[in-house]
């Protein structure tokens, strides 16, 4: 067992030297909400305005991981330092999870050496993990300038991805009514780029037609016209997709993006702190609250009373 100070120093120095084990360790500290984590962040944090976060979202099985296995190396070849985070859902019953996004990426990761981390949603709704922003901050501070995020596969409008990304790619595939699901779920308003994947499948033309029809019902100012067609087995169309991502990046206001991510995280941390404090107070006051329950007071008035007490104390 190391002492706290030397453990922090090890991780901080490791991250400064881009050691993968240190970067990975810091992400674990964030996930486990270890008290060491804030001390690590305070020492490694740097405002890296070069960092772009690319979200690749879409229904389960539409080909997100397979596409990333092509996009990652291509961005790397363009001179970027690339990292990937892919999220899978945790079981609501046991808290455990099966993290399987590597299956379609492993070969590509081994060839390219790209850093990849599988994350469990750990009970978060919205297809991400509570600690995803912290993971992004760690990676960005460690010098990664392109971070690709694969959220839990979903046909739902998981708008949380908007808070943490600068470019959102929505992936559709034929055969499962994805195009209609996407329309229903409001994915159209989310997308910066649409991809129709699995162009080798027989239904692809019909799927694209259907999807274009739904697109035509979106208010014009929010409409993305372009649909990039890909085959994530052969890689066909993925050059074009990468070009499209790079094009979109050119138009991103990095200052605004940075502000968005920073603001979201500061608020999350503050809420967390308040929640912890509140829980402590509630525990300390549990007898008092119990007494109120027999007083006939309604819950809202009782909560008011509790808050008054807290405010008077601080």
């Amino acid at each position: 067992m190391k002492n706290r100070g030397s453990e922090i120093a090890d991780i901080v120095n490791g991250i400064k030297k881009s050691r993968r084990e240190s970067i990975a360790r810091a992400i674990t500290l964030a996930e486990n909400e270890e008290t060491l984590f804030p001390d690590v962040i305070k020492r490694i944090y740097r405002k890296n305005m070069q960092t772009r976060v690319i979200g690749i979202t879409g229904a389960p099985g539409c080909g997100k991981s397979s596409l990333i296995s092509f996009i990652g190396p291509k961005l790397m070849a363009a001179g970027h330092r690339v990292a990937i985070i892919a999220v899978d859902a945790s079981s609501p019953f046991t808290g455990g999870s099966f993290l399987g996004n590597r299956i379609r990426m492993q070969e590509s990761l081994e060839k390219s050496g790209i850093f990849m981390r599988s994350m469990s949603s750990r009970g978060s709704r919205g297809g991400l993990s509570m600690s995803i922003t912290n993971a992004i901050i760690v990676l960005s501070s460690a010098g990664f300038d392109r971070i690709i995020i694969e959220p839990v596969g979903s046909g739902q409008s998981d708008t949380d991805i908007m808070d943490i990304t600068s470019t959102i790619v929505v992936v559709l595939s034929p055969g499962f009514g994805d195009e209609i699901q996407a329309a229903k779920a409001g994915l159209m308003e989310l997308a910066d780029i649409f991809v129709m994947n699995k162009t080798d499948m027989p239904d692809v033309d019909r799927a694209e037609r259907d999807f274009r029809y739904y697109l035509s019902t979106v208010p014009p100012d929010k409409m993305v016209h372009e649909i990039i067609k890909t085959n994530a087995i052969s890689g066909e169309g993925t050059d074009e997709l990468v070009r499209s991502i790079e094009n979109h990046e050119k138009g991103v206001d990095q200052t605004a993006f940075y502000k968005k991510i920073f603001e979201t995280e500061v608020l999350r941390i503050a809420k967390d702190m308040v929640a912890v404090e509140l829980e402590e107070i509630a525990r300390a006051k549990s007898e008092w609250i119990k007494r109120l329950s027999t007083s006939g007071l309604d819950p809202y008035s009782a909560a008011d009373k509790l808050l008054n007490q807290i405010n008077n104390q601080s």
Binding site: T94, L99, G100
Partner: peptide, 18 residues
Amino acid sequence: LARAFRDAGMEVIYPGLL
């Protein structure tokens, strides 16, 4: 195995062939 580990509350990383 993967399923059993998950059901025991673990996070199972399965990358296919290594």
